[in-house]
């Protein structure tokens, strides 16, 4: 019995070590974000008082436009994705019409298309449409990708809703639209949550697309904006790290509050691509 307990303690110790290894860069970021350059040189590792909160104000002023851009692009993409994916998932799941299987097959094939290799052709197309440096050009690939994955997730999810609920609604006189708004939507809330989170993380993390299509600094999103921010603050470490932290906050907060949906989303993406 005592051997078992020491075993468990050893496992905890190893796991804690792994946790520490994984979190070390972020802890370093938090510690450094409150330091002046003098403090940073005096004590490289340890937290040092006083904690300079004004670093955050400096950083916030510089990265606020990037954050707002990312938020706007994310919200637009999420709304478009959620609406279209839920309607098409509902239709594919609940209606019988010729070509339904083929259509779903076509959506599944799209999952296998590697998005990033489309960068160049898509860029040329957007340039020809004169859409560079607009929100539209940022939203298009996220919405398209989100709709493909979202349709698959929604269809699978709606498939699992018992048909008897729909039959009951029909007996009560509900039409197609009412069945969508009053039955499908409320019941598929978890799936919609996952789809929204996937879209949010995609928008927040995507790098090459905004790098290529946006040249106007006022239009830059977080991922690319941070690189420019880094260039401007390369030698003032406190504000630099504070900026990194501020840029992470939205995703981390969402992750902490909704980690269940977050993980379901990541693994749902896995299931969808099988």
């Amino acid at each position: 019995m005592s051997r078992l307990r020491s075993n468990q303690a050893g496992i905890k110790a190893v796991l804690l070590l792994l946790v520490l290894g994984g979190l070390a860069p972020y802890l370093f970021m938090i510690i450094t974000s409150g330091k002046t350059n003098q403090q940073f040189e005096r004590s490289f590792w340890a937290p040092d008082l006083p904690f300079h909160l004004e670093n955050y104000a400096t950083a916030w002023n510089q990265i606020r436009p990037y954050l707002l851009n990312s938020v706007q692009v994310a919200v637009i993409s999420i709304v478009i994705t959620a609406v279209i994916a839920s309607v098409s998932g509902f239709v594919l799941s609940r209606y019988r019409f010729p070509g339904r299987r083929l259509l779903y097959g076509l959506v599944l094939v799209l999952m296998a298309v590697p998005g990033i290799t489309n960068l160049i052709p898509l860029f040329v197309m957007m340039r020809d449409f004169n859409l560079l440096n607009t929100y539209v050009v940022l939203v298009i690939p996220y919405a398209t990708g989100g709709i493909v994955l979202g349709t698959i997730l929604m269809r699978n999810f709606i498939d699992a809703i018992p048909q008897s609920i729909y039959d009951a609604a029909r007996v009560d006189g509900a039409g197609a639209i009412r069945m969508y708004t009053h039955v499908t939507l409320p019941l598929s809330f978890p799936a919609l949550g996952s789809i929204s989170l996937i879209t949010l993380t995609t928008v927040w993390n995507d790098f090459f697309w905004p790098l290529l299509v946006i040249s106007d600094d006022r239009m830059r999103t977080v991922s690319v904006g941070l690189q420019y921010f880094q260039g401007q603050n390369a030698i003032s470490y406190g504000p630099l790290m504070a900026g990194y932290l501020l840029a992470s906050v939205p995703l981390v907060v969402v992750f902490v509050l909704l980690s269940k949906y977050f993980l379901a989303g990541v693994q749902g993406g896995l299931a969808g691509s099988q």
Partner: peptide, 17 residues
């Protein structure tokens, strides 16, 4: 939870750190 927290940070932040 602690092991997967790094996933929550944006990729660009991780790369820049």
């Amino acid at each position: 939870t602690l092991l997967i927290v790094p996933m929550a940070f944006p990729g660009v932040v991780t790369a820049l750190i």
